[in-house]
Design a protein around this nucleic acid. Structure first.
Lengths: 152, 152
DNA sequence: TTTTATTGTAACATTATTTGTTACAATCAA
DNA sequence: TTGATTGTAACAAATAATGTTACAATAAAA
């Protein structure tokens, strides 16, 4: 199955804070209307990102801010903060293989290290991509929109 | 979320066919009792593996067999056969980002290549592991069981 | 101090997805 | 023709993701 949309929403949130943070107060309502989901969904995400030390959120007065430079936050940091897949749990193992079958008894031990390798490869790639990479490209596409408009 | 248990069950099936295929007819009931799931779950998987050309199944008379050498079947082959994640769909994107927000309009374009890189890294690792690797290790653990028994 | 806007969170509702089950026609060797 | 088996439809149950309502807690500003 797929990795939760919380992950892409979280990156969307970082991009919004970075792009609009100077001009607007970034509230859960503001973010909710850009992402197009219920504000509570955003607040739950903000809570997770805050718990991971990636953002700060001003209670009462409102507004979210990014806690450290965007090029020091990797996709993996966000994935960890937001996904609830424990380490080495990317693959769902069938629960009760037969203990009276030699294969059933040993399938788990025989497979675990290999499944870990796959998950590690994925996580390694995630560590190599920063939120800044994503934000730069999003801004590049925004600039392209504008230049098209200018030519009209 | 996690990758379906169909994947680990499929590898379990290959291991069973290889280990027991000489001595037993490998029916969906036989496999079901080793994996410990309903035989229909196994049959559905066998149908998918057959469609991918990885096994043959004898209708009527019964019995599954592996279609080509185990070291020529990678985890990725099995994953493709069995998972229903289309290519570049590992990540669930939020459906309707706002079109009136510049970030909302461009988040998808700005992210897609990066998400593809992550998925590709995972698939690359899967391609580097064969069913034979898994089966060899399972047999190694079975042998260790036996040697412990022998010593008693 | 009161008001206002906001966050944090619980509780519940809805939808989607995965997994399990029953039933039975189709198949093929004996 | 029998018996064992596969293939598949139809449905059931369990699990997980996402969405919603409601409201107390918070903090700045009036």
């Amino acid at each position: 199955m797929q990795i939760s949309s919380r992950f892409t929403i979280a990156i969307h949130i970082f991009a919004c804070i970075d792009v609009f943070g100077k001009d607007y107060k970034i509230t859960s309502d503001f973010l909710a209307s850009s992402v197009n989901v219920n504000p509570v969904v955003i607040r739950r995400l903000l809570t997770q990102l805050k718990a991971a030390g990636l953002i700060t959120v001003a209670r009462g007065t409102g507004g979210a801010a990014i806690a450290r430079p965007l090029d020091e936050i990797t996709f993996y940091d966000v994935y960890l903060a937001v996904e609830c897949i424990e380490s080495n749990k990317l693959f769902h193992f069938h629960d009760n293989p037969s203990t009276s079958c030699p294969v059933g008894r040993n399938i788990h031990k025989g497979l675990d290290d290999k499944l870990e390798r796959v998950q590690a490869a994925m996580e390694r790639e995630m560590k190599s991509i920063t939120i800044k990479d994503a934000k730069d490209d999003i801004e590049k596409y925004i600039a392209m929109e504008n230049s098209v408009t200018d030519k009209q």
